[in-house]
């Protein structure tokens, strides 16, 4: 999509709506980026540039913050996010074999998105549901007491439910 179309389309509407709630001072930067990512799914380059123009915060400084915190993404993600927990409780209960089974079932590595754009697979440090270890989260739903066989089934069920072939 080129910039000229975006001006006409509603592309910048979320940006404007978000910015109207902030004074645009430096201490607002992280909450602004969090809201922008919530609206756009990631932090597109042109949105970062526009943010810099609007607030006077240098692009380098915005990028410095965006790359420091693991929450921010500079590439679009899949429709669903899978977060595999690598917390200590999960680690001692076999998180690694669960993650390997997931990678194998989806045919991607940790941090990647499936070619059909359905799933982005990420590792997280701890989801805090340690007594259910090992745990993963698909979007906002947590799945606990996982085994390699169980995660493969969850992914297959997910595709079946959405009526899509894998």
């Amino acid at each position: 999509m080129c910039g000229c179309c975006k001006e006409d389309s509603k592309y910048y509407e979320p940006f404007e709506a978000i910015m109207s709630g902030f004074k645009g001072t430096e201490s607002d930067l992280i909450p602004i980026l969090q809201k922008l990512q919530g609206a756009y799914g990631y932090l597109p380059e042109d949105i970062i540039k526009r943010l810099s123009e609007r607030t006077g915060i240098f692009v380098t400084q915005i990028m410095g913050v965006a790359t420091f915190y693991s929450q921010f993404k500079l590439k679009p993600s899949g429709r669903h996010s899978i977060k595999v927990c690598f917390g200590t409780a999960c680690h001692v209960n076999g998180a690694e074999t669960v993650a390997e089974a997931l990678c194998d079932e989806l045919g991607i590595k940790l941090g990647d998105t499936t070619p059909d754009g359905e799933f982005t697979l990420e590792s997280v440090a701890c989801l805090g549901c340690c007594s259910l270890a090992p745990v993963m989260m698909i979007d906002d739903e947590a799945y606990g007491r996982l085994t390699p066989a169980k995660v493969r089934q969850i992914i297959r069920d997910f595709y079946a439910k959405e009526g899509k072939a894998k």
Partner: peptide, 8 residues
């Protein structure tokens, strides 16, 4: 900012 993995 409870960041220790395994703590809740």
């Amino acid at each position: 900012d409870e960041g220790d993995p395994g703590a809740f």
